[in-house]
């Protein structure tokens, strides 16, 4: 038995299907076969058009989801940036250096000191010393519960670095616990001027100020025969 097909123009129509599929593959989601011939082959053409429709919908959906994911990702990244920024800000804020008197800076330290925070603090203080030209700074650690070897060494380093800049750094408010730790750790603080309280440190600093004023006044005393010495 021989089946008969009623198909017109088969060659041309297959070519058209090929063309349409090629342009869909190339990204043209508007391309359709859209044949208006009704015969045994038109079912296949219609089915292909339907598939292209489905594919288009699918792709659109996917693009939408992807866009949403991307926007969420960028939001998260934004938040992460904010958190990092805030952490940095907090680090800066947690070590405010203020000029409290002529020639005197104070850095009150509150809370636990870790190595990183001490490092940032040290850099801030030294920069502020240079910026303000203050020759006396007080590092008040009344609000610090404990220190470890590393932190104690950083404090020591700060004082030495300040001296290299041409400034004096006094540490005040060393608690009994910290004094015990420092001595037990074998860290030598004898080269550093320490004061019991912030008040003592202030008094000392103001005396230093007064002393340098007096010494400055000495510059105006004239000495006879001074060029013969």
């Amino acid at each position: 038995m021989k089946e008969s097909f009623n198909v017109k123009n088969l060659k041309n129509r297959i070519d058209r299907i090929e063309d349409i599929l090629a342009s869909v593959a190339a990204g043209d989601m508007e391309a359709r076969i859209g044949s208006d011939i009704e015969d045994d082959f038109s079912g296949i053409e219609a089915a292909i058009d339907l598939l292209i429709n489905d594919l288009t919908d699918e792709l659109r959906e996917r693009a939408k989801v992807q866009k949403e994911l991307e926007s969420r990702l960028s939001k998260i990244q934004e938040q992460q940036k904010t958190i990092l920024q805030q952490q940095e800000d907090l680090l800066e804020l947690s070590s405010p250096v203020s000029k409290v008197w002529d020639n005197i800076l104070i850095l009150p330290v509150i809370g636990t000191l870790d190595s990183q925070r001490t490092q940032v603090m040290m850099e801030n203080l030294l920069q502020k010393i240079v910026d303000t030209g203050c020759t006396i700074s007080i590092l008040d650690i009344t609000g610090v519960p404990t220190v470890d070897t590393q932190v104690a060494n950083h404090l020591l380093k700060t004082v030495t670095a300040a001296r290299l800049l041409g400034a004096e750094c006094i540490i005040s408010g060393i608690s009994p616990a910290i004094a015990q730790t420092i001595v037990h750790l074998g860290i030598d603080l004898s080269a550093i001027r320490t004061k019991a309280t912030l008040q003592d440190a202030m008094i000392y600093s103001m005396k230093q100020n007064k002393r340098s004023e007096e010494v400055k006044a000495l510059a105006n005393i004239s000495f006879p025969n001074e060029n013969e010495g």
Binding site: M122, E123, L126, Q127, T160, A161, L164, L165, G166
Partner: peptide, 29 residues
């Protein structure tokens, strides 16, 4: 002799290097 105007980063690095320059006079400016 007075050494004048050392930058903070330089001072920190010198101390870490182990060169504390004892006995050298320094001034901010």
């Amino acid at each position: 002799v007075v050494i004048v105007g050392m930058q903070p980063a330089v001072a920190i690095t010198l101390v870490e290097l182990g060169l504390e320059m004892p006995g050298v006079d320094t001034a901010l400016n």
